[in-house]
Design a protein around this nucleic acid. Sequence first.
DNA 1: CGTCTATTTGAATGTACTCAAAAGCGGTGG
DNA 2: CCACCGCTTTTGAGTACATTCAAATAGACG
Lengths: 196, 196
Amino acid sequence: MYMHPLLIQHIHALVPLTREEEEQITVAFHQKKLKRRQFLVQEGDASRFLSFVTSGCLRSYFTNDNGQEYIIQFAIEGWWLNDNESFLFDTPSTFNIEALEDTVLLQIDKPALELLFKNIPQLERFFRILYQRSFIMLQKRVIAAMSQTAEQRYLDFSARYPEIVHRVPQYQLAAYLGMTAEFLSKIRHGIAAKKS
Amino acid sequence: MYMHPLLIQHIHALVPLTREEEEQITVAFHQKKLKRRQFLVQEGDASRFLSFVTSGCLRSYFTNDNGQEYIIQFAIEGWWLNDNESFLFDTPSTFNIEALEDTVLLQIDKPALELLFKNIPQLERFFRILYQRSFIMLQKRVIAAMSQTAEQRYLDFSARYPEIVHRVPQYQLAAYLGMTAEFLSKIRHGIAAKKS
DNA sequence: CGTCTATTTGAATGTACTCAAAAGCGGTGG
DNA sequence: CCACCGCTTTTGAGTACATTCAAATAGACG
């Protein structure tokens, strides 16, 4: 069975793996394809799988009582995503994950992952480092949300993730950055005016 | 040498440990005491130690170009803290950690921690789970910062962490919640008025 | 008690939001 | 190839939430 090499590359970049371990990891994951606008997880579902994106683009978001959507994360090739709380504690998912493009994922469920952890301590280490890094990134996002204006947040994000900016619709970028679509439009207008 | 049992209890709550492993962990940490207002880390320092609080209270915060302070985290008994980015990547710290009360910590440096990870795979698992949970909490904080009013954030925090609310000065709570001290005062005034 | 720090109060201001409507854009079918 | 439809982005006016600055008041600690 063909399996995309990106996953092993990705893990191997942080921890050493033997050929046999690579093989064990590879067979533990299965592939899943999603069409654009298809949901991977919907609010209320159990998020049974941890997913790694090999191609495409998704968003995870939650909807508040007023029906307003807030995007928690975008994920493109080489990114992991799932509802961690649902996956870790076996609770219903509090948010939705939707494909923004046709997407291919590699998935693993919790029992299979626990088995891998047992056989391959290096994998536990990999995820320790991965979550530690994610933690650092999220702290930066909290600081940005608290201390920066909407324009600064947009400029910083554009500089850091230009690829995502041109792949997702503008109103979803606004929902990620914590502002309204109208206001982001005005910010962009303002920036364009300054340049000339 | 006396060592506070809270650390081992804390780890043991998530992963099993043998007596020997407990002993190994215990001797790897050393105790550090801080007086109120003393700094554990200052911006620009290398954050060489990972710290676990056995008593007292600290804050980690960063200062922006205008001199305004934003609190990233409070830590009381049973909490970990450090500048993860500085610790993980050996870069200068971007924020400060200050004791808000007389405080006792257990500390470990990176080489000693790596040695423990090598000898005790369960400890790597412990930190994987710890960072995963921290990640979940931070995602919630991002969502709160984006989607809730200042009053809602204050009420939610008060309900979840009443102990911290009464231990730290109000202006620092404001700096954690992402609002000015003046506005938090007005919020509290408004809530008191509603109740009567 | 006096000094320093923290909290409260008020007025003016600013940043971002809401609502409404118009304009732009991309795909689809005639 | 053009016309239409739905979705996205833009524009504008009015408003709300939160900030800034200044000053008064309250509290804590030596």
